[in-house]
Write a protein that binds this DNA or RNA. Structure first.
Length: 476
DNA sequence: ATGTCC
């Protein structure tokens, strides 16, 4: 049904007009080709989100959008607390604050070539990866609460990083309003041994080569040069975020009716921002954001220790760390009025344009680095936020390639061993304990990341700075 | 995404 309701309103922008229970339209940023390959269920989900109380402007989907739990992955929606706006655990995603950080190395990819196998082995040995993976750190209850309040700043304070890392992390490595007291003992128990671990699924640590630069001015400020090696880390809040999400969804599903909320889909369970359920989730979610920031910070420390042993000339400096599964209170101007909104980004990256006060001074003139994690066989991208983005999807952009096949379908089509062998022939080293996981993450199971980024670029959600190609991929 | 179903 939604296909016929889809109106093209720009070269790379489509709209489902507001109708029926929709409070606002749904808008999708994508090329005609990406729209042709889009599952109808994504359009239905984007339209369903538009029915939620207090939604502002439109329900948005990014060019990498695909079917998710309730909300599409690649979905953006903002809610006004003064108009009955809601917070939804499914609108953030199970892996709260999943995100990407990219580190400069200061050395060329050529300098790594002779050590590639050793480097891959050492990273794989040092970085705990896979389902249920545990690290060397075990947090006491007191440590746990300090971590949940302090985020990456807590990790740096413990010696796992440098002060400069924090200036290059979204929110300077620590979000305010975290409430560890709203997190269950079970969630904390699951997390206590999982700090500094990668997890599974689409998470990875990659050594990459800057294959091409598209914006010389931004690349200079970001410190990117063609041929340079960089390191990117993609992971989130592990068992803690998952447990918080699971518990919140259950509570929101049980209490939605009592708040007078009619759900078009049970998976869109939500609670008014002002409600006790809503406030408890927000406090727990913010603590999970800090957990993910601390996790990526510890992984950074582990990566540095490996490089120090194998390639001591490399100096790993953080370019930027940005999350793509969050809900954040932000001020946006809508129809000429500045409003404090709760912006859900689920598989969508915040993309602040030039001059935004939340950016560190040395990046402010250029805009925020927007880190796009692609696939282990194709590539990843670094984009920059734009001035126009301020009025497009609440300053948001895509977050990756976006799945085109389900995990199940990918497992039917590929064998992990064969995927690893064919990538090795192309000079890409993959290390993973899970052949099944590699099959699910086969590059062919994703949309064309270059096409996704091209659509985001043309729509001015964020514009191209550099394309990265994988050299070494450590997978969960 | 996830101790891939308490």
């Amino acid at each position: 049904m939604p296909e016929r309701r889809l109106n093209r309103i720009g070269e790379d922008e489509w709209e489902i007009a507001q109708e029926g229970a929709m409070r606002v339209p749904a808008r999708i940023f994508a090329s005609a080709d990406l729209i042709a390959g889009l599952d109808d269920k994504v359009l239905e989900q984007a339209a369903n989100v538009a029915m939620l109380p207090g939604i502002v402007e439109a329900s948005y989907a990014m060019p990498d959008a695909h079917w998710g739990y309730g909300f599409p992955i690649g979905g953006v929606a903002a809610f006004d607390p003064d108009e009955g706006g809601v917070i939804s655990a499914g609108g953030v995603g199970f892996d709260i604050s999943c995100g990407v950080r990219t580190l400069l190395t200061g050395i060329g990819a050529g300098a790594i070539a002779a050590q590639r196998e050793r480097l891959a082995d050492a990273l794989f040995q040092r970085i705990p990866a896979g389902v249920g993976s545990h690290g060397e750190i075990s947090l006491t209850p007191k440590d746990m609460d300090a971590m949940l309040r302090g985020g990456a700043a807590w990790a740096v304070g413990r010696g796992w990083g440098e002060a400069d890392d924090l200036t290059r992390t979204e929110d300077y490595g620590c979000v305010a309003g975290a409430c560890p007291e709203f997190i269950s003992a079970k969630a904390k128990e699951r997390q206590k041994g999982e700090m500094g671990t990668l997890g599974s699924g689409n998470h990875y640590l990659e050594v990459q080569r800057v294959a091409a630069v598209f914006d010389e001015d931004a690349a200079r400020v970001y410190g990117l040069k063609t041929g340079d090696a960089v390191v990117s880390i993609h992971c989130g809040s592990r068992g803690l975020g998952h447990q918080i999400g699971t518990e919140a969804l259950r509570e929101m599903a049980l209490t939605a009716a009592s708040h007078g909320i009619a759900l078009p889909d049970r998976e869109l369970a939500c609670a008014p921002i002002a409600s006790e359920t809503g406030q408890r989730y927000l406090g727990a979610m913010r603590a999970a954001i800090n957990c993910a920031l601390a996790n990526r910070q510890i992984l950074t420390h582990l990566a540095r220790s490996v490089f120090a042993a194998i390639l001591p000339r490399a100096q790993l400096r953080l370019l930027y760390d940005v999350s793509h599964n969050t809900c954040k209170e932000e001020t946006h101007t809508v129809e000429g009025r500045a409003r404090a909104l709760y912006v859900h980004r689920k598989g969508a990256t915040r993309a602040l344009g030039p001059g935004h006060p939340a950016l560190p001074p040395d990046l402010r003139a250029v805009g925020q680095p927007v880190l796009i994690g692609g696939t282990m066989g194709t590539g990843s991208w670094i984009l920059r936020g734009t001035a126009e983005g301020t009025t497009r999807a609440f300053a948001s952009a895509c977050h990756g390639a976006g799945r085109s096949l389900s995990r199940h379908a990918a497992r039917q089509r590929w064998q992990g061993r064969a995927v690893i062998d064919s990538l090795a022939e192309r000079g890409i080293i993959v290390r993973s304990r899970s052949a099944k996981g590699v099959a699910e993450e086969a590059p062919g199971a994703y949309k064309d990341v270059d096409a996704v980024v091209a659509a985001a670029h043309r729509a001015r959600l964020a514009t191209k700075v550099a394309r990265l190609e994988p050299l070494i991929c450590i997978k969960g």
